[in-house]
Nucleic acid binder design. Structure first.
Length: 462
RNA sequence: GGCGCGGUGGCAGAGUGGUUAUGCAGCGGACUGCAACUCCGUGUACGCCGGUUCGAUUCCGACCCGCGCCUCCA
């Protein structure tokens, strides 16, 4: 068994993965800010780290996976105000929606999902420590800022130089910060704004401090992996390192992992650009597992382009895999063989899911051949291998019939389809091929495709 | 401007110092009443220019192009 190699943003290269505690992995991923529905970019991160944690478990690690929920911030408060609702009502609704979306995509729930509002006390304690250590200061207006210049390693993750950041910053004469690069740990609230009491002002936490407080509280000061979306690298993660290491005096995280961006029409999909597709929108057109297949079929660090063609292709490819196991009872006790070995080799190499996908297709080819040769025992075993490998990626977990025939209530019912198939079989027996073809065409128009075989006719929805 | 990533066959997308993944689409054949599905066969691609090498798509350098971050954003 080879050693897992993973790409570390900190060192910008692949490194052998060695957890701090043998056999245990502690991982923290920055989750959603819950003021709107999840878009495909969120799905990318959700699925990427779902695959990573699934695979680490598949390899036998005891994984503690923490993914936070940011349930208080300026965007949330603004949106709640626009909607004329309490921000807690908004965030509860969005959290429920997020859980629905991720469940649809086959994303397993993290070990824990801490919410920022439950960690205000820990954040205040951390800020107090930072002030005591001289790494933070209280501004005249009651805000608290992190003094970036006090932290030697600032910029080590994003490879930025402090001088450049200061030189490039916009000059704001009214700014209460000592340096333009300093960032807020605590923001004093205005009249009527949501706030919590603190030693400095009634206010709310800055964005970055919540992740430092939640990650170190749940996982300890020093843990293995920290992940997130590509745009969190700077400033969010850079600031997390500065705060956490300044406060604890310990190294924060060993491996930083960042997913690639999702693009649409040559531009990054993002909320600020307004060009995003929400997960629920996409699921109106494509089965959830197709969306997952699409995401998993490229490497987590590479950029992906959302397009109808790409989703359709993913659908055809996934159909091929399900078709291979359709009608079989996969034997998952099948001994591990060359395919398992190759799959692990690829996945060990920085979670190369795109490569691993070729193994799934190779197994599907085996199955198709074995079935054609009438070797049901071999086919059943191969199907077990396919199921096993698929599960490590969160794919092929459905009953094939559900995948092929699942539809909505306004679709043609299975009973009607079966009747039509019987009628067509009768016509074929009578050599009335015109009638047989008419029935087949009619079903096709309603999105039902017939597959004839020696054993009879099966159907699936287009 | 600073920092970083990438340019692979019709498309998507892995990978490798020499035997050219995989999927989709296409083409030929088998199967089929005809199709579909499936099977067999078929495609010699690695931005440009130099260098290293017996040999580079793969290593090094320059260049061109695209993208991301530098502001809230997964």
């Amino acid at each position: 068994m080879t050693e897992i190699q993973l790409h570390n943003t900190l060192t910008q290269r692949k490194e052998p993965f060695r957890p701090i505690d043998d056999g245990k992995v502690r991982i923290y991923v920055c989750g959603m800010t819950v003021y709107d529905y999840c878009h495909l970019g969120h799905a990318r991160v959700l699925v990427a780290f779902d695959v990573i944690t699934r695979y680490l478990r598949h390899r036998g690690y005891d994984v503690t996976y923490i993914r936070n929920i940011t349930d208080v911030d300026d965007k949330i408060l603004r949106r709640a105000e626009e909607n004329g609702e309490d921000f807690l009502v908004l965030t509860e609704r969005m959290i429920a929606a997020m859980h629905e979306d991720e469940a649809a995509l086959g994303v397993l729930r993290p070990t824990e999902e801490p919410r920022a509002t439950d960690y205000i006390r820990e954040m205040i304690a951390m800020i107090e420590t930072l002030i005591e250590k001289g790494a933070a200061y209280v501004a005249d207006n009651g805000d608290v800022y992190f003094a970036v210049a006090s932290f030697d390693g600032y910029g080590k993750l994003s490879k930025k130089k402090l001088e450049d950041l200061i030189a490039g910053a916009r000059v704001d004469v009214s700014d209460v910060k000592h340096s333009p690069a300093d960032f807020a740990l605590w923001k004093a609230a205005g009249p009527g704004e949501v706030s919590w009491p603190s030693p400095w002002s009634n206010g709310r936490p800055g964005w970055h401090i919540e992740c430092s407080a939640m990650s170190t509280t749940r996982l300890g000061n020093h843990f293995d992996i920290h992940g997130g979306g590509p745009d969190l690298l700077f400033p969010h993660h850079e600031n997390e390192i500065a705060q956490s290491e300044a406060a604890t005096g310990e190294p924060f995280v060993n491996y930083w992992m960042h997913a690639g961006a999702v693009r649409v029409d040559q531009e990054k999909m993002s909320k600020s650009l307004g060009n995003f597709f929400t997960i629920r929108e996409i699921l109106e057109t494509y089965p959830p597992e197709v969306v997952r297949y699409f995401l998993v079929s490229s490497h987590y660090r590479s950029q992906v382009d959302y397009s109808e063609d790409n989703l359709k292709e993913a659908e055809r490819a996934l159909t091929r895999l399900y078709h291979a196991i359709r009608g079989l009872t996969p034997d998952e006790t099948a001994p591990e063989g060359e395919h398992d070995r190759r799959f692990s080799e690829l996945m060990d190499d920085d979670f190369n899911t795109a490569g691993a996908m070729t193994v799934l297709h190779a197994v599907a080819s085996d199955i198709n051949q074995q079935r054609r040769d009438g070797d049901d025992t071999a086919a059943t075993r191969s199907a077990g291998v396919l199921r096993r490998l698929g599960r490590a990626l969160g794919l092929l977990e459905q009953d094939p019939e559900a995948f092929f025939q699942g539809g909505s209530d306004d679709d043609l019912s299975p009973e009607v389809i079966e009747e039509q198939i019987a009628a067509r079989a009768e016509a074929r027996r009578n050599k009335d091929f015109a009638e047989a073809d008419r029935i087949r065409d009619e079903l096709a128009e309603q999105g039902v495709i017939l597959d004839d075989s020696r054993e009879g006719t099966t159907w699936r929805r287009a």
